Amino acid sequence: MEVSFASPVQNFYTLTLSIMSYSKLSTGSNTTLCVIDNPAAAGIFQTQIKQSTYGYKVQSIPAASFVKTQCQAVYFSSQTPAQQEALINSYPSHSLLSFSASNIDCEIGSIFCLYQQKGKSTFKVNLDTLSRSQIRIDPRVLLLAKNAE
C-alpha cells in the first residue's frame, strides 16, 4: 500500500512524526524515536519536534547498540531491508514502530517505507510487519494508502 505527498525528501521527517502521532504506542507521551546510524537525521527530527507540538524524544543510536535501547519507534536511513529485519527481530519488544528511508519494495523490514517518486514523498505499508508489531495504527493512516500493485 502507498500514499503520496507533494513534498521533498525533507518531509520524510514530517511524515514520520505525523504517522507516529496516529499510532497507539504503549508509552504515551514518553515515546522515544531511535535513529539508527544517522546523527544528522536525529538532529533534524529534534528540530522538527521543537517546532511542533509533538512530545517525542529522539536518540541517535549505532546499530550495534540498538537492542540495548528503550525505543518505541525506529528510523532507518541506510540499512538494507534485510538489516532492518534482523534489527527489528532482535529487538526485545515486539511493539516497535519502524520507518525506513531505504526500503522501496517494503516486502521485509520496516512497517513504513518512505521514498521519492516523481518528486513526491511517498510511503508504503508492510502489513505483515505491522501485524507482527502489535502496534495499532489509526485506520485513517491506512485508508490514505492504496494498493501499490
Results as ranks from 00 to 15, higher is better:
F99T: 00
A42G: 04
L130M: 00
C113Q: 05
V74Q: 07
F5L: 10
N126D: 02
S95V: 07
F76N: 07
K68Q: 14
D138H: 15
L96S: 12
S121H: 11
F45K: 06
I44C: 00
Q83V: 05
S18Y: 13
R132E: 12
S52H: 09
S98V: 11
T80L: 01
S4A: 11
S4I: 05
S60H: 05
V74I: 02
A145W: 10
A148R: 03
F5M: 03
T69F: 01
P8Q: 14
F12L: 05
S133E: 01
L114Q: 12
L144C: 10
T16Y: 08
V125K: 04
Y91T: 04
Y56Q: 01
T122C: 11
Q48G: 06
V67Y: 00
Q48S: 12
I88Y: 01
Q59G: 12
Q48E: 10
L17W: 12
S90Q: 15
K118E: 15
F99C: 02
S23L: 03
F5E: 06
A40I: 15
Q83R: 08
R132M: 08
N89I: 00
L130C: 08
A86F: 08
R136K: 15
S77N: 06
S90G: 14
T80H: 02
G55S: 13
I137N: 04
Y56E: 05
K57M: 11
K68H: 13
R132C: 07
L143G: 07
S18R: 15
S98Y: 14
F123W: 08
E107C: 02
P139W: 11
T32Y: 04
Y75L: 11
A40N: 13
N11V: 02
N103K: 09
V58E: 05
T53W: 10
A41L: 13
G55F: 01
S100I: 02
D138V: 01
L127G: 09
S26P: 04
S110W: 10
F66M: 14
I104M: 01
H94K: 15
M20A: 04
N38D: 14
P39F: 05
I44L: 08
Y91P: 03
Y91C: 12
F99S: 00
S21D: 14
S7G: 03
S18N: 15
C113M: 01
I108K: 11
S95T: 08
E149M: 11
A86P: 04
P8K: 13
K120M: 06
L33R: 00
L33K: 04
M20F: 09
L17R: 06
T16E: 05
R140M: 11
S98T: 09
A6Q: 15
S29L: 08
T69Y: 08
Q59L: 12
K68F: 07
D128S: 10
K120E: 15
K146A: 06
E2Q: 12
D128A: 13
G109T: 03
A73P: 03
S29Y: 08
V58F: 07
M20T: 03
T16H: 02
